[in-house]
Write a protein that binds this DNA or RNA. Structure first.
Lengths: 306, 306
DNA sequence: TCTATTGTTGCATATTTTGCAATAATGATT
DNA sequence: AATCATTATTGCAAAATATGCAACAATAGA
């Protein structure tokens, strides 16, 4: 029994409060978790977890030990990372959570190139537009798009994106073209479920102002809304990294060009409770450099309307 | 591969500068040490030890890692000990170095009883009258007899012993009985090789004074000298725990009763570089209690000469 | 040059670990 | 109250891993 692995499992079990969840997260059989923890307990001669089939709770010994384990594991992480610090080729496994649209459209090619350049790296991607808890989820890294950071997050900004209000030419021909954000209430606008969905924000005179919108379609996928807009169903406000392709292909037109929207930040977020391994930092630096300070997707703002 | 075990082996290899020595000390095959360290190196992606078949030296990464390993291992020790701290039955392995005479005559029965009372304890004894380095030797504990502590030793006094000057009645009949330490120069006295061997110390008026001795037999075993004294070959100065039995059986007589000798301390010495496990502390307390403040062996000082 | 010892490797054998399936226990739901 | 779904645990066979031994190559000392 590898005591360090056992400790790792024990810590996760304590954090998630479930053997099964840990087993799933770590890609091992439930029995492994059971036996690893049992092995630890046998080794220590103490019960660590009081388990009733449905709920777990820490023994007092378990609570003490949990803290020590955390300390030890982070020390081990630091020790192992500290060596290969620079110059060494990054290696190991990366478990990343990231948003669907940005992840699939923009990040995937970067991951592909990164993996080609670093054959000793393996990557596990969990796409999700929810802000999953990094620690509970056992992730090494999260990529998030947001207009501001959650307080307490340990993050590195790796890029940004503007947003654009877009609609298909067919829609515009039928319903006219809004000239000012306050016109949006008269239009068929799509709300993004994970944000405020009944109004859109614009920056006017340096201040963020919210304007109510009209519309009957909400969804929790920017891609879906974009598809609807392309079909001519209405207007959507999308980050440039989503709208980019459709705008270039003239399937969508950018509206309200004179009213910029708040910039979205693209962040790499680290779990706050442990040492950031070398491989994580290397990947994040790579992404930041690939995205650059003037992201490709924002270039569509400069396209001349025909 | 258990990383903690590997780290332990690596640390020992670095300390002893030899794979073979570690293998012997830890009771495993040389190949195990090789592969464990190699495994660590593979895991880290760095060479830790530069090995030329005859001499080892740490890589710079190795040196860094060594320190971290020490820290981690002592933390693990502390974590594992800290739980079962009190009330729990001690368990695990004890590697002890101890002197021949005292160890065999006095300590063995105590160890026996201790093991009977603590069936989860296993003990490995390395008898030696040399002051072996606790850390290099990989011992959990050393028992030492000395009139004073080496500076820097982390020790607990677990008892004491007086010394007595003794000779067989046959010898005394032949050569007479010394009345004062200064008479010893005229007698056949045995020198203990591991101490100052040409003079003996006595406490007179509260001060330690040294008196030269005559004699032609030196040895590095108090038992051997005692045997020689019993044969009537001469006079020896022995700790009471060695002379006890022979004196009780009237095979030897105590001389110079009015001239006490410096008290010998019996010490338990701990390796200074790591946490003292529970089992070690329990054993030491047990020994201290068994020996007591008025050790049995010193009782022979009160026997009336016939 | 020879020798003794060291660290490494191939190989057959033990040992351990793993996942799957079955079991028993328990909280939630109907 | 009874059923249900899910949980942690265990038996078992297969897979993976570690072990010791012996042979080997390298090296410092005689």
């Amino acid at each position: 029994m590898d005591r360090l692995d056992s400790m790792q499992l024990f810590v996760r079990v304590a954090e998630l409060g479930s053997f099964a969840a840990v087993a799933q997260q770590m890609h091992v059989a439930r029995s492994v978790v059971t036996r690893q923890v049992a092995g630890l307990e046998a080794h220590l001669g103490t019960k660590l977890l009081a388990r009733s089939t449905r709920r777990l709770s820490l023994t007092s010994a378990g609570a003490t030990y949990l803290e020590k384990c955390r300390e030890i594991l982070s020390l081990v992480d630091a020790a192992e990372g500290g060596l290969t610090e620079d110059s060494q080729a990054p290696r190991g496994h990366l478990r990343i959570t990231l948003p669907f649209s940005f992840g699939i459209r923009q990040l995937m090619p970067m991951f592909g190139d990164f993996m080609k350049a670093n054959p000793e790296i393996s990557i596990e991607l969990e796409f999700s537009d929810r802000r999953s808890n990094l620690i509970e989820g056992g992730f090494d890294l999260a990529i998030r798009i947001a207009d501001r950071l959650d307080p307490g997050d340990v993050a590195r900004k790796i890029g940004s994106s503007q947003s654009v209000v877009v609609a298909a030419p067919a829609y515009l021909k039928l319903h006219g073209r809004p000239k000012h954000p306050r016109d949006l209430i008269q239009h068929e606008c799509f709300g993004y479920l994970l944000a405020a969905r009944s109004s859109w924000s614009f920056v006017i005179d340096g201040e963020t102002q919210w304007f109510p919108i009209g519309g009957k379609l909400d969804a929790n996928s920017g891609d879906a809304l974009l598809a609807a807009a392309i079909q001519g169903l209405g207007i959507t406000k999308a980050p440039t990294f989503i709208a980019e392709e459709a705008v270039r292909e003239r399937k969508l037109e950018i509206l309200l060009r004179k009213f910029p929207t708040p910039e979205l930040g693209i962040y790499a977020i680290f779990p706050s409770n442990r040492y950031v391994p070398h491989r994580v930092r290397v990947l994040v630096e790579y992404l930041a450099q690939r995205i650059g300070s003037q992201p490709r997707w924002d270039a569509i703002l400069k396209l001349r309307a025909e």
